[in-house]
Amino acid sequence: MSDRKLQLIATAPMGLEAVVARELKELGYDDARTENGRVTFTGGPADICRANLWLRTSDRVLVKMAEFPARTFDELFEGTKAVDWPDWIPADGEFPVEGRSHKSQLSSVPACQSIVKKAVVEKMKSAHGLEWFPEDGARFVIEVWLLNDIAMLTLDTTGPSLHKRGYRRLVTEAPLKETMAAAMVLLSRWHPERPLYDPFCGSATIPIEAAMIGWNIAPGLRRSFNGERWPIVPEALWEAAREEAFDAVKDDIPLSIAGSDLDPKAIEVAEAAVRKAGFAKEIKLSVLPAAKAKPEDDYGCIVTNPPYGERLGDDAEAEKAIRQLGLAALYLPTWSFFALSPSKSVEHYFGRPADKKRKLFNGRIECALYQFFGPLPPIRREEQPVR
Rank of each mutant, 00 (worst) to 15 (best):
Y349K: 07
P175F: 04
I9R: 00
K320F: 10
P375Q: 00
S101R: 05
K177E: 13
G326Q: 02
I208F: 07
F338P: 04
A240I: 00
K292M: 09
I206A: 08
P306C: 15
F372T: 12
A241Y: 01
V171C: 08
R242V: 11
Q113C: 13
K81N: 09
K64N: 10
L153M: 11
A290C: 15
K284P: 00
D298T: 13
P295A: 15
P377K: 02
R381K: 12
E173P: 13
V171R: 11
D84A: 14
E244A: 10
R22G: 04
P295W: 10
D355Y: 05
L285N: 03
P306Y: 11
P254K: 03
N148V: 15
I302E: 00
F41E: 08
D47E: 15
L186M: 14
G300C: 12
T40K: 02
M184L: 15
V171H: 08
R169P: 00
K64C: 15
T34R: 11
K284H: 09
P207T: 06
D87K: 03
L288S: 14
Y197C: 15
S188P: 07
E347Q: 08
I150K: 01
A266N: 04
P377A: 11
G300I: 14
A91C: 04
C112P: 02
E173V: 15
A280V: 04
F73M: 12
S58N: 06
Y197M: 15
A127G: 03
L176C: 07
S343P: 05
Y308M: 10
L27T: 03
G259H: 02
G137S: 07
A111V: 14
T72F: 04
I208E: 06
K125F: 05
R223C: 09
K276D: 08
K250A: 05
